[in-house]
């Protein structure tokens, strides 16, 4: 069925509405003006040099990267293990356990933020790196599990069984049979987890203490000191997101072809 003129118009307008914020921010980051006007009166790289010249932004970027790296790796490990366990093993109360793992994705983040804020304050985890890593890992695990559940469910159990019958140890089975085939899924899950951690703002703002991440700094700037540096940060974030997702897609595709 070909859509009529009205449907097409509404759809295209909606698509434009969807991507408008993204295409507005990029040109503004190259603006020469210090006000937030669009279109920019002239072009310059001053907001990028202001970003890279600011110790606040640079250290926030490093904190974000380190935090996202640790959390996403830990989350990938724990999340895919749990996903494997839930898909492959018999477990009592499986539904409840799985819902428990997914809950941080479903509940409004403000609830998680407030709960962690109050609880972490009591046990001295507020403003610590350990507390931040715990929170981020818990928040990104559901995304890892969504990706890995699909992977494990579509992965043929008999392959493992064959390997086992042939006398391979569990470890060998994992290393030689399961992991090579799931590599792309693991990579995709890790990228999603990393991006998610890198973007997290609500919980981080509550529990980070003196740690400053890029989104936390952006959020406080949006409320405190609005400066066009923020458009440069936003553009860098867009570039980073697009690059990592494109990378993930590419690797997934390539490995699908080789398998």
């Amino acid at each position: 069925m070909t859509p009529n003129y009205a449907v097409r118009t509404v759809a295209i307008v909606t698509l434009g509405f969807l991507i408008l914020p993204v295409i507005i921010v990029i040109p503004m980051s190259f603006s020469s003006a210090s006000s937030m006007s669009f279109p920019p009166p002239g072009l310059s790289l001053r907001w990028y040099s202001s970003f890279f010249g600011s110790s606040v932004w640079v250290s926030a970027t490093i904190t974000s990267a380190v935090l996202a790296l640790i959390s996403s790796t830990l989350g990938l490990l724990l999340g895919s293990m749990a996903s494997y366990g839930l898909c492959r093993r018999r477990i009592m109360q499986r539904g409840i356990i799985e819902s428990n793992f997914m809950a941080p994705m479903i509940l409004p983040t403000i609830i998680t933020a407030v709960a962690l804020y109050i609880a972490f304050a009591k046990i001295g985890l507020l403003g610590t790196l350990i507390g931040l890593v715990m929170a981020h890992t818990i928040l990104l695990v559901p995304y890892v599990m969504v990706v890995m559940n699909v992977a494990f469910r579509s992965f043929d159990l008999r392959q493992e069984q064959v390997s086992w019958t042939m006398g391979a140890s569990w470890y060998t089975t994992m290393r030689r049979v399961v992991l090579p085939q799931l590599g792309p899924n693991l990579f995709a899950a890790w990228v999603f987890a990393f991006v998610h951690s890198f973007d997290e703002v609500v919980v981080t703002s509550f529990i980070a203490g003196t740690y400053n991440t890029v989104p936390k700094q952006m959020f406080s700037e949006l409320i405190l000191e609005i400066s066009p540096t923020i458009t440069a940060v936003a553009t860098l974030l867009i570039a980073f997101t697009v690059a990592s997702l494109a990378g993930a897609t590419l690797i997934m595709k390539r490995s699908v072809q080789t398998v």
Partner: peptide, 20 residues
């Protein structure tokens, strides 16, 4: 000196209550 911001009143209560 290590600075942290902002300074909502609730944060002060959290500090004292948690004996931080």
């Amino acid at each position: 000196v290590v600075r942290e911001s902002p300074n909502p009143f609730g944060k002060l209560r959290a500090l004292v209550e948690s004996k931080d």
